[in-house]
Design a protein around this nucleic acid. Structure first.
Length: 303
DNA sequence: CGGCATACCTGCAAGC
DNA sequence: TGCTTGCAGGTATGCC
């Protein structure tokens, strides 16, 4: 499921349940996901209070007392869900595990309310880590991450600056988490379409042209921001079985202009949307609207 | 350095 | 219907 809007949707769903609550217990149902679960994870987080639920790029950060942060990445198929608590604590031990429920927390917000918060991940590309809170920016996973696309740092100037020496396609540059952190395949395709830009255009040459036409860079920055914000408002995109933490579906996928719409008409000009492989991943675009000059002459370019 | 293939793992849909 | 194949939002690694 998860690019930035989906992770943000999860964060907003978990926040009211988790923030201020205390972790009564935690449970691990297998030894690893992408990485092994941290040593003594359950012990180390039990009885701590949750201070905040934050997000950095596609990482969910559950900040605990005692300078610890529980980090969760959803990979391709990870999801968190909240189970309504019964007052009877035995409810939790009786509740059957769903397939691929790998990790769970039982939390208590006040003297009465308890919730079970469960991490489910069929493909197990996700991860659960425990790090010191002050390492959130220096930990190897975070140190190289680029800017948050919804922050003020994303601007036309930023794109020109960052792209001017990047000798790769715009698609690859936007997917590069060390430049902008949080974009994935879907929203890159959508942002490029909105911006009338070819995914194959070379980032450095693009940046050069933009010196003369800074508006275009500003427009790309704006479109990135807009597509992400709109997706968050819609509760993310539901592909396959992605759901929000309360089981509600996101519905931004209905607003895709090109992603997943091979052979369907471009919403602007009616030309059939094309799908090609680029860097091993599907790129969806409209040949008519996104016919920028300076395409790379490499593979993946449509003939 | 960039692109590409591969790996991780399961589920699903399409195609035969 | 049932089997095989390919593909999927993620990141990491190694090879050219």
């Amino acid at each position: 499921m998860p690019e930035l809007p989906e992770v943000e949707t999860v964060r907003r769903g978990l926040m009211p349940i988790l923030e201020g609550a205390t972790i009564l217990s935690a449970n691990i149902n297998r030894s690893d996901l992408r990485y092994p679960f941290p040593e003594k994870l359950c012990q180390r987080i039990s009885h701590r209070q949750i201070i905040a639920v934050k997000r950095r790029a596609k990482y969910l950060l559950i900040e605990l007392t005692g300078d610890l942060t529980l980090v969760s990445h959803l990979g391709m198929s990870g999801a968190w869900r909240i189970e309504e608590a019964a007052l009877d604590r035995r409810y939790f031990s009786r509740a059957p595990l769903a397939v691929h429920d790998h990790f769970s927390l039982i939390v208590q917000a006040d003297s009465k309310k308890q919730h079970k918060v469960i991490y489910n991940d069929p493909r197990r590309f996700g991860m659960i880590l425990l790090i010191h809170t002050d390492q959130v920016s220096t930990h190897p996973l975070f140190a190289k991450l680029g800017i948050e696309p919804l922050s003020d740092e994303l601007s036309g100037d930023f794109l020109i600056r960052e792209f001017h020496n990047r000798h790769k396609s715009l698609k690859a540059a936007l997917l590069d988490q060390t430049i902008i952190a949080g974009l994935g395949n879907i929203y890159v395709c959508e942002a490029l379409w909105r911006s009338f830009l070819s995914p194959f255009r070379q980032a450095a040459r693009f940046a050069e042209e933009l010196q003369q036409q800074p508006k275009i860079a500003g427009n790309l920055a704006l479109n990135i921001r807009n597509v992400l914000s709109e997706a968050i408002k819609a509760g993310g995109s539901t592909l396959r079985d992605h759901k929000q933490v309360d089981g509600e579906l996101g519905y931004f996928q209905h607003n895709f202009s090109v992603y997943g719409r091979e052979n369907q008409p471009c919403p602007r000009c009616g030309t059939a949307v094309i799908r090609v492989k680029q860097s091993g991943r599907s790129t969806f675009f409209c040949k008519q609207c996104q016919n920028g000059n300076n395409q790379l002459s490499n593979q993946g370019k449509p003939s």
